[in-house]
Design a protein around this nucleic acid. Structure first.
Length: 292
DNA sequence: CGCATCCCCTGCCTGC
DNA sequence: TGCAGGCAGGGGATGC
């Protein structure tokens, strides 16, 4: 479920349980997810205290004492749930409808009595344990682009990132080397808000001097706004994550185009019908009538 | 280098 | 009802 707003929602949901706690025991029930777990993963985590839980792009970063960072990525279908550990249940973790315990791949047992369980049917997620020092200069973080909710992200930056690119603008937007954390859903939604066709080349965001065009000046705030609104709504909850314990994400009810093929364009005065096209093997949703 | 394609894996939905 | 095929929020490797 994992674009920036969903990962941020998970971060906020897990932080009260994780930050300040120590790992008493870590159980892995698979040899790995997308990649094998690092050597002695569970043993190295045991006894470590979580000092902070941060997010970069779609990654969660648990900074531990002892100078290491636990990297967590949810892939397509990963989710966390919190069991036990006091009076405040943490319902923001979008636990899948299936609740298939066969896909509980990692259990983090904490000294505050809580257990944090990672469930991931498709096992596209990832976990790693790396030195905290210089983490931003190493893969995968060294290749990530600008955080779209940061001050550094604006029309000028967006234009510079896309200047000269002949890739379709939708593909450029979900390229993590350009904008970190934007994914398929919110790229589609932002383009609709900015009335830009996802099929146009990314280069239309910059003029001959590399400065932002009107399209960039519309799109940059649209990206920021849709992400902020989605974070505020607790992210989006769909498909296998449709019925989470605690049912928090509800931004899916605000989609203008995503997963709305054949429906009426919600823009006032627009008579368009939302279309779905394939770009780079993934579905893009847009309104051919008002996105130019 | 930039971009497109394919693959990782499982579950769900659709259409035959 | 059963089954094959298509599709799914991501990201990494490969090849042109």
């Amino acid at each position: 479920m994992p674009e920036l707003p969903e990962v941020e929602t998970v971060r906020r949901g897990l932080a009260p349980t994780l930050v300040g706690a120590r790992f008493v025991r870590v159980e892995t029930r698979q040899s790995g997810l997308r990649a094998p777990f690092p050597p002695r993963f569970a043993e190295r985590l045991k006894g470590r205290r979580i000092e902070a839980l941060k997010r970069r792009a779609k990654y969660l970063l648990a900074a531990l004492d002892g100078g290491e960072t636990l990297i967590l990525h949810l892939g397509m279908s990963g989710s966390f749930r919190v069991e036990g550990g006091g009076e405040s249940p943490i319902p923001t973790t979008h636990f899948p409808r299936g609740k298939n315990a066969a896909h509980d791949h990692v259990v983090f047992v904490l000294d505050n009595g809580a257990r944090v369980v990672y469930n991931d049917p498709r096992r596209f997620g990832a976990m790693d344990l790396v030195p905290s020092e210089g983490i931003d200069e190493r893969a995968p973080f060294d290749a990530l682009g600008v955080e779209p909710l940061s001050k550094e992200f604006d029309a000028a930056r967006l234009a510079a990132l896309c200047a000269g690119s002949r890739a379709p603008i939708k593909a450029a937007l979900i390229d993590q080397k350009r904008i970190a954390g934007l994914g398929n859903i919110y790229a589609c939604e932002a383009l609709w808000r900015a009335r830009i066709s996802p099929l146009r080349p990314a280069a239309i965001l910059a003029d001959a001097r590399g400065r932002p065009t009107a399209a960039a000046r519309a799109l940059a705030p649209a990206i920021r706004a849709v992400l902020e609104e989605a974070v505020e709504a607790g992210g989006s909850t769909l498909r296998d994550h449709r019925q989470p314990d605690g049912e928090l994400g509800y931004f899916q009810h605000s989609f203008a185009v995503y997963d709305r093929e054949g429906a009426a364009c919600p823009r006032r005065g627009c008579r368009g019908i939302i279309a779905r096209v394939a770009q780079g093997g993934r579905s893009t949703f847009h309104c051919p009538a008002c996105q130019k």
